[in-house]
Amino acid sequence: MRLTCPHCGNRGIEEFAYGGDADRRRPDGEPFGQAWMDYVYLRRNPAGAHREWWYHASGCRAWLVVTRDTTTHVVASVQEVAR
């Protein structure tokens, strides 16, 4: 698989580290409960489009949001996490 980093260009997957579901939001300020369990443990694992974090570990060290079809590995978009 290859990802087109918005800074570095098209690179092989070995430069990147997977960071999981990018639609998770840390339930800041909430007490322990379902929201925290979901944030830490629950993953949707859809068959199809999936927004996910990738870290360009061996490149520019940007955290990226990749939209990937989990059934075909076709990458629809790669964007930098808003900074």
């Binding site: 570095c8 690179r11 061996s58 490149g59």
Partner: peptide, 11 residues
């Protein structure tokens, strides 16, 4: 400039 890796060595 390219930030990349050689095998397991960041470069």
């Amino acid at each position: 400039v390219a930030l990349t890796r050689a095998g397991h060595i960041d470069l």
